[in-house]
């Protein structure tokens, strides 16, 4: 799933630059896992009153063309409101990274994040610092998360790589080149996000953990709603009320013609028997366990 708007920028990088000696290929995609995203938001929520934005360190894995951000941690930084002073606690990042490395040895520092979508001189300096001392020889990625708390700005994420600019190479001189940024999750992470989304729709921001059957019920409901929608559409096309879209028609044909041979009556009955048997066994074992534990109490 893509997070940032698709930009029209062309990604060009000079290969013959003395500063980038490593033969790394250009990063083409940045993916972010929910944990990193939520941590950044939490960090932003807990910022000090004097801070306008928060800065932290991104951890993850990288391949030649892709950076995967698995998690992140907050960094200590401060800046004056008139942008005359800026500091970033480097020792803290190093010790935090060491701690993190003990639990997740595969994850390395891949870049840094900040909230708000402004890129200024300090962004360039911080980026340069990360690129030189943390992620060298690989390029660092900068993820700017717009929290949407300022008026007129939409919440969203953008990822940038830096590219040197100018005749003489100086730290504050660089272009932030946008990179496509996607939100990624595995099945387990997805169900965690679902849980949070459900807790949102409950209104009070609070829910109990649902049972498996409830989750199943809700997804069957969703499927039924989708079927109803499709049915209504097909009926209206047949009745001539709306003009049919051939691509939708072809898609529907593909979807509904999926073979269901495996579910013919014979295998259905046998699978049903298996499931019944398993369920019977499970209940029997539970009952036995309960009886056994009670008997231990009464037998002297």
């Amino acid at each position: 799933m893509s997070l940032g708007s698709s930009s029209s920028a062309i990604h060009i990088q000079t290969a013959s630059n003395g500063a980038t000696t490593s033969p790394t290929r250009t990063i083409q995609k940045v993916t972010i896992h929910p944990v990193a995203l939520f941590s950044i938001l939490d960090h932003f929520l807990r910022r000090k009153d004097t801070q306008d934005r928060v800065i932290g360190c991104l951890l993850g894995t990288r391949t030649e063309t892709e950076i995967e951000v698995h998690s992140c941690f907050a960094a200590l930084h401060g800046e004056l409101s008139n942008s005359s002073e800026f500091w970033l606690e480097d020792n803290y990042i190093n010790s935090m990274y060491e701690l993190h490395h003990k639990v997740h040895p595969k994850e390395v520092i891949v870049g840094w994040y900040s909230t708000g979508s402004t890129l200024d001189t300090y962004s360039a300096l911080v980026h340069d610092h990360f690129e030189k001392s943390k992620t060298a020889p690989h390029p660092a990625v900068h993820v700017a998360l717009n929290t949407g708390t300022e008026e007129g700005s939409k919440p969203g994420i953008a990822a940038y790589l830096s590219s040197p600019v100018g005749v003489s190479r100086k730290e504050p001189n660089c272009i932030f080149v946008p990179v496509p940024c996607e939100f990624q999750y595995n099945d387990a992470e997805r169900s965690g996000v679902d849980l949070l989304v459900n807790s949102l729709s409950a209104g009070t921001s609070i829910t109990n953990s649902a049972s498996n059957l409830e989750v199943l019920e809700s997804s069957i409901q969703t499927v039924m709603e989708m079927l109803d929608r499709v049915l209504a559409y097909v009926r209206s096309v047949i009745a001539g009320e709306t003009k049919g879209d051939p691509s939708i028609g072809r898609y529907l044909l593909d979807t509904f013609s999926i073979s269901t041979e495996g579910l013919d009556q014979g295998s259905f009955a046998s699978t049903l028997q298996d499931t019944l048997m398993v369920s019977y066994l499970a209940n029997l074992v539970r009952a036995q366990a309960e009886v056994s534990s009670r008997l231990q109490l009464v037998s002297a």
Binding site: M1, S2, L3, G4, S5, S6, S7, S8, S117, A144, L145, N146, S153, K154, P155, G156, I157, A158, P178, F183, D187, R190, S191, V193, D194, V197, N212, V215, L216, S219, I220, T222, V223
Partner: peptide
């Protein structure tokens, strides 16, 4: 369309999943 250039606007929603099915 993506023509309205804002650096941080989401363009896709969280797709529904049916892994429980």
């Amino acid at each position: 369309p993506a023509s309205s250039f804002s650096p941080a606007a989401p363009s896709a929603a969280l797709a529904p999943t049916f892994s429980s099915l």
